[in-house]
Design a protein around this nucleic acid. Structure first.
Lengths: 195, 195
DNA sequence: CCTACCGATCGGTAGG
DNA sequence: CCTACCGATCGGTAGG
């Protein structure tokens, strides 16, 4: 009888979805187990049957985010222009899914504290993002497709920072910020070839 | 007898300082009146004698931040290169005062929510920052000191976003991020004259 | 999965 | 400014 297991897995996914939404709206510390459980229609003790602690639930939310990312990412993309285009596509996706941007921005700011349970996650996340973009800028530089004076490492750091900063401003004053357009123009400005 | 008033004002300043530090470390919602009061050495009821509600204390923290900013800003600086240099000086100042960066990043992320008591503050803050930088880029463009293809409005939005994004990454992985250097190179890249 | 409970903590008030 | 208190809420546990 695998039916029982299936039901449990579906319920767990529902809980993770509800938690991600709550974290986006209220942050991790601001989201109580009771409030998350209510979205799913169970008691907070029932939630703790599926996830033993509040931190375990956060870990599950971050794991699923990573899983979704690597799914979308298709590891087949080699360093270069396509990686940059992939980031623009991600930004387009995010504009249509503000809840994800909320979640990410709220958690990233909270997790600046070294004792935050998601701190190590974001340390790894930032390093991986920077390294990936760095590699692509380096490949472009080697082909002479990067403007003179643009240093790949610095450009990668700056690009990631720009994405994050634009997201917060976009969430605060949505009408004032063209998220995708700003990123596209920034990248195009660094290149000697069309994006 | 003005002595009593003076003592009260000093105590209030101490409370605001403690609150700003707490907001930076734990966010607004994460900072209890009891924890803030403890830093000052009074009870939380004593704190409420000086600030009637939790929100009133937040308002006082934001007001002081604005006062400090406009003090440092010297309204004498006309739009142009000096305004950009002023932002770089601000970044240098921030690197030596991580608590301020903490406060700002934490509150900005929390205040993305429209019902956050600091939401309107950040809406105004972002608009003012963008308008100020926009004006300077426009002045530079008029003098032909902006690289071709660089649009002042977009460049201003991007510059503010970059500052914010770099700050979060710097707080998360301080060793990996050169805050001032990254900003300087970004700006220099937009200009046809040396910064 | 539930009800019922625990100790801890929250913002705010009463009364001095 | 204090002590003492209020009702509400928190994460987690016991016991089914």
């Amino acid at each position: 009888m695998t039916g029982g297991y299936l039901k449990g897995r579906i319920r767990r996914e529902d809980i993770i979805t509800a938690a991600a939404a709550a974290y986006g709206e209220l942050g991790y510390h601001g989201s109580s187990l009771r409030a998350i459980a209510k979205r799913v229609g169970i008691s907070h003790a029932g939630l703790l049957y599926h996830f033993p602690t509040k931190e375990a639930l956060l870990a599950a939310v971050l794991e699923r985010r990573d899983a979704e990312d690597s799914e979308r990412e298709q590891l087949t993309v080699p360093p270069g222009l396509d990686v940059l285009r992939h980031f623009l596509a991600l930004a387009e996706y995010n504009v249509r899914h503000p809840g994800i941007v909320d979640l990410y921005s709220r958690l990233a700011a909270e997790a600046v504290a070294p004792d935050h349970p998601a701190h190590e996650y974001f340390v790894r996340h930032y390093r991986a993002a920077r390294d990936g973009v760095h590699e692509s800028f380096a490949a472009l530089a080697a082909r002479g497709e990067l403007r003179a004076g643009v240093e790949p490492g610095m450009a990668a750091l700056t690009f990631i920072a720009l994405m994050d900063g634009l997201q917060v401003q976009w969430l605060t004053t949505p009408g004032d910020v063209d998220l995708v357009g700003s990123l596209r123009r920034y990248l195009q400005n660094l290149l000697t070839v069309p994006l």
